[in-house]
Amino acid sequence: MRGEAICRDHVSARLLAPFAPLVLMTGAAVAAEALIEFRQVSHRFGARPVLSDINLAVRPSEFVCMVGPSGCGKTTMLRMVAGLLRPEHGSVFYSGAPVTEPAHAVAFMFQDYSKALLPWRNAAGNVALALEASGVPRAARQPRIATLLEKVGLGGHAEQFPIQLSGGMQQRLQIARCLAQEPAVLLMDEPFGALDAMTRQSLQDELLRIIQASRTTALFVTHDLEEAIYLGDRVVALHPNPGRIAQIFEVTLPRPRNQLETREDPEFIRLRHEIFHFISAGAA
């Protein structure tokens, strides 16, 4: 598989001779260790270009956040990794093979929890859907559902329906359903965007705790700069129209992170300034 990918790389390198040094650099440097990789991905919706020449490699167990204004193609990139959308040009690779369809090892957490949960199933039933899909036998489901709901703090709410749960709890339920897939990769599309500040912070911390314990790779889309810096190992800043990677910022803040100390860290504040100015300059 990997050999094939490298061959393909050589072919594209020849086709794109003028850009060869760039291709070889990005391709060769990351091919060895990337779990997810965008290679020269461009895409259009109708006549409107949404992504232009995206190259990005995500290492295993890395937490990468993507920030940028609306229309910069953040969600489109996630949908490509999930196998919900095929790029028009270029490819997205997952463990060395091009993504052509959704995979069990890749979970997707949707922005609008009220539309991503099945309103006719209770909390336990919504988690069960993921287990049914991956063919877990009926007898084995119940204990796993209980563990998962416990893990996201919904232990006592198994019988409640989504409409009876608060926004934060519904998003916890979606986390539980994603975890039921035992994913190697968790894709999140502005998952906390609609929640109030307090709920958002507690969910950020729980997400980090869960993800660090399971060594899951995460790709996290957000509008919120601070959220991106707080969660990520790297922050990818995108510029819109068409969406393109403007710059990638390394976040060296120590883990585990803490809502007070991390956010007061001079490095956090420095990054926030840097990325903020960078993005507003791009939007202007």
Binding site: A82, G83, L84, E101, P102, A103, H104, V106, A107, F108, F110, K115, A116, L118, L129, A130, A133, S134, Q181
Partner: peptide
């Protein structure tokens, strides 16, 4: 919801 069903395969 259809996306959910696709992602879950």
């Amino acid at each position: 919801l259809l996306d959910v069903s696709r992602v879950l395969r």
